[in-house]
Design a protein around this nucleic acid. Structure first.
Lengths: 125, 125
DNA sequence: TGGTTATTTAACCAGGAGGTTATGAGCAAT
DNA sequence: ATTGCTCATAACCTCCTGGTTAAATAACCA
């Protein structure tokens, strides 16, 4: 069960558009149209991405008249983090807390580690 | 920069075979043949998986006569974790440290969160 | 009843992923 | 140099992904 969830979760996270969608949803709920707006691609493409995210359990959807507001869901992110955490002896030799790690990364070399990683209009790099 | 690395990293993590390979490498370096042994699939298939892992920077390779020992690399795991950590307000409402999170997960519902998630011979579930 | 908005579905396409078998290349040992 | 082991590459297949446009569905509004 965990394996398939991890498959879907990591696969969902592997696309910049979907990470940007999650970043947006981290700020607030949003409708499909709202989510699609900052991107160059068509709205059905966004719907497809949302389906991937939904299949991974990363977003859930409500109902507001014709709109289907999307909400970020925690559990898959939690499981993915837990999986990665089991390797922290490797990637964080002397860090005990993520805060320290983040501090180190942000001071060091990373400018887009966070919920503004890939600008929607700069997807191609 | 970070975006493309995250793409490759999460994509690499999205396959149970590759996660199992990483789990194996977390214990020790290993040659391709050693890595391929527990799996049902052919050796070229493993080579392909290793190439994906290598492209993501998750493994590096040395030289020992004919053998090409694989070693787990930390940085992409670190960046992936850092990205996920930015959502910890969602997935870990009251946890400050991963240890607490792990404790909670392991006590709760997860039996395969770790470097023995998907048994190589039980890939299909 | 019809029209407008929001979203999904369908049909299609190019390209990549993940597997196979067969072959080639590098190094070692006899 | 021939054999044997380790690993990579090539060629091929099938299925999925990520995008498109066009049409269908669903809910509101008049």
């Amino acid at each position: 069960m965990g394996a398939e969830l991890l498959d879907a979760t990591f696969a969902a996270l592997a696309h910049p558009t979907r990470r940007a969608i999650l970043a947006r949803l981290a700020r607030s709920e949003a409708t499909v149209t709202e989510l699609a707006e900052p991107f160059e691609m068509s709205q059905p493409a966004i719907s497809k991405h949302l389906r991937v995210l939904e299949r991974a359990g990363l977003v859930s959807r409500g109902r507001d008249a014709q709109r289907r507001p999307c909400r970020l869901e925690a559990r898959p992110l939690r499981e993915a983090t837990a999986w990665l955490a089991d390797y922290r002896d490797y990637w964080a030799e002397s860090y005990q807390r993520l805060d320290a790690l983040l501090d180190e990364l942000q001071a060091g070399d990373s400018t887009d580690v966070a919920p503004r990683p890939e600008q929607p209009d700069g997807t191609g790099g």
